[in-house]
Nucleic acid binder design. Structure first.
Length: 571
RNA sequence: GCGGUGGUAGUCUAGCCUGGUCUAGGACACCGGCCUCCCAAGCCGGUGACCCGGGUUCAAAUCCCGGCCACCGCACCA
């Protein structure tokens, strides 16, 4: 048992439960691993985090979307989650330990097991007599454990659905409508803030690995040929701490440079990617994560999700848990849209207009039905259709042969030059249809929430307090009569009520001595306490006490809202 | 999932080994009152707990079994 007061994590956990931030869910029924409740103060902070993200992307002109948590199976077959969001497991019949079957087979047989079925893996294990690496016991059948929660839609068991393991698919499946909303012009961005679910085998570490969690996922659709961000200049001088793949493999440590340099030196693929790295960093700073606790780590190839070819995690440092992935910026290419295009048959392309319409010449060849009709009878139409389906190259060959030999045999029919009608036609092509590529900054909300609290917790000799960024505080101002006596009580209550009406999250508190109350509000991160003292009835002034410095300034009651707004929100 | 440790009011804990005066004690917090004119003061009163389910026993917070949860290590983390 950790002695009270020695472990920051313990103090924080205690504070979070006691003061209404967050705690494990379903307590009265014994709890359930991987689920967390947000209390009144926690829910407020969480909402403020979400709001910072929302505001930042709305400022970029992005659109917000909201789609269902429950999703029909087809969507995740298309997205690859049914197939790839699984771990093949195998259990030792003797000692009961479970292993990743694919890892085991790969290790022993030194072959690639990518995409192998459970049956195939089982067979290989039997054929090669692979045993339990721990005790040497016999291994059972391989089965796939899918990390998605399954459910059924409607009263019959034939309509399978899943709780979404990421919010992103809700955006991809809506691409046609969103593209229309964006008036067919790339790039555009869409984001969704909502719940996602993953049936983790063994969730741990408090609220850092949950089975149900909140994400803010941003899908930016762009033309892969246009990867220069028009506003990169605004962010090019921002310094970032990078931990690229090479530095991880060779243990070279982190490097720091401006984003401009990072792109120039090839660490970051282009200014488009770099721009959103800057955005993510700014959002985290705006939430109140200290700059020196933020780094960008490039995922190793084996860590990457099935849809991504390059991903940078934005990690925040925890005193307790080390570097924690809080945001992932994934280059998803055209993976998702192409898959949905193929599976659904929907046209998920965007027309990229050429600067000038292109004049494209091409051959149009068909049979002269008047001549060949009587000859081929029933086959005439069939062969005509066949020829018309040929591509440019095949048609050119046909014409060449006809020019040279004057005749050709197709499907056993001898045809001469005059049996064909050959036309060279010109077509105006306005542009090219492409499947857009996707860049995805994906924010966890619960992790930054925890890391914000952990990084804000200050332990001093005579008090423990949350040095939250002032505008993130769940209670923004506490109004306190110096003593619970009239007329101070009435004046204080009026001041409180007026601050509420002015839009502040405020509380009124007259219980206990003034010092005790200050400590009480310091503990939950309230940046300012307004105290009504004996001078107030005389000249209508009150004091504003600063959480961090404990210093007080005296202001007129009428100036209070404006002054507090300036102090808390800086405007 | 495996192994280890643990689970007593909102929080921390005493009691458990050696079953019975445990009607479960304390501190802090919380609520009501008194007092109090600036940084956790004091006084009076009050609310509130043996994780869940079985078993052993005349008797279980205490012993045994199972489950759940938490922490640590292993495995896992698309």
């Amino acid at each position: 048992m950790v002695v009270m007061g020695t472990d920051k994590y313990e103090i924080l956990q205690d504070l979070m439960r006691r003061r209404g931030f967050a705690w494990g869910s379903f307590e009265i029924y014994g709890g359930a691993r991987g689920f967390y409740d947000y209390g009144p103060l926690g829910a407020t902070i969480k909402r403020k985090i979400e709001q910072k993200i929302r505001e930042a992307f709305i400022k970029e002109g992005f659109f917000e979307l909201e789609t269902p948590d429950i999703t029909p199976e087809k969507v995740f077959i298309a997205s690859g989650h049914v197939e790839k969001f699984v771990d093949p497991l195998v259990e030792c019949k003797k000692c009961g330990l479970r292993f990743r079957a694919d890892h085991l087979v790969e290790e022993v047989l030194e072959i690639d097991t990518e995409g192998m079925s459970a049956e195939h893996l089982s067979q290989l294990i039997k054929e090669h007599g692979i045993k339990c690496p721990e005790c040497g016991g016999e291994l059972g059948e391989v089965w796939y454990f899918n990390l998605m929660f399954e459910t059924f839609i409607g009263p019959y068991k034939d309509k399978k659905g899943y709780l979404r393991p990421e919010t992103a698919q809700g955006i991809f499946v809506n691409f046609k409508r969103l593209n229309a909303f964006a008036r067919n012009r790339l790039p555009f961005g869409v984001f969704q803030i909502g719940k996602a679910y993953r049936n983790e085998i063994s969730p741990r570490q408090g609220m850092l690995r949950l089975r149900e969690f909140t994400q803010a996922e941003v899908e930016i659709f762009f033309n892969p040929k246009e990867t220069t961000h028009p506003h990169f200049d605004e962010v090019k001088d921002i310094a970032v701490r990078l931990y690229p793949i090479e530095n991880q493999l060779k243990d070279l440590g982190m490097i720091e440079m401006t984003l401009e340099e990072a792109v120039k030196r090839g660490y970051v693929m282009n200014t488009f990617f770099a721009y959103y790295m800057a955005m993510v960093k700014n959002i985290l700073l705006d939430i109140g994560i200290p700059e020196d606790k933020i780094r960008f780590r490039q995922q190793l190839p084996e860590e990457r999700a099935h849809y991504s070819s390059d991903t940078w995690d934005v990690e925040i440092h925890s005193e307790r848990f080390g570097w924690i992935e809080c945001v992932g910026i994934a280059y998803r290419g055209d993976y998702d849209l192409s898959r949905h295009k193929k599976m659904s048959g929907a046209d998920l392309t965007v027309l990229i207009h050429y600067d000038e319409p292109k004049i494209v010449k091409h051959l149009k060849v068909s049979l002269n039905m008047k001549r060949v009709g009587p000859k081929l009878k029933g086959d005439a139409k069939r062969i005509n259709d066949l020829i018309r389906s040929w591509d440019e190259e095949k048609l050119r060959n046909l014409v060449e042969v006809l020019e040279k030999d004057g005749k050709i045999t197709i499907e056993g029919y001898k045809l001469v030059k005059d049996d064909f009608i050959v036309k060279e036609i010109e077509e105006k092509v306005m542009g090219e249809k492409i499947v857009p590529h996707v860049l995805e900054p994906s924010f966890g909300i619960d992790r930054p929430f925890y890391l914000l609290l952990e990084n804000s917790l200050v332990i001093e000799d005579d008090r423990v307090y949350l040095k939250l960024k002032k505008d993130m505080a769940p209670i923004e101002v506490a109004v306190l009569p110096l003593v619970a006596k009239e007329p101070l009580k009435s004046i204080a209550y009026d001041v409180f009520r007026n601050l509420q009406k002015a839009g502040f999250i405020a509380v009124y508190d007259e219980k206990d001595t003034i010092g005790r109350r200050y400590v009480r509000y310091d503990e939950i991160g309230t940046p300012y306490c307004v105290t009504i003292d004996n001078q107030t009835p005389i000249d209508s002034t009150v004091t504003i006490r600063d959480r961090d410095t404990r210093e007080q300034v005296r202001v007129k009651i009428e100036d209070l809202p404006e002054k507090l707004r300036e102090l808390i929100f800086g405007s």
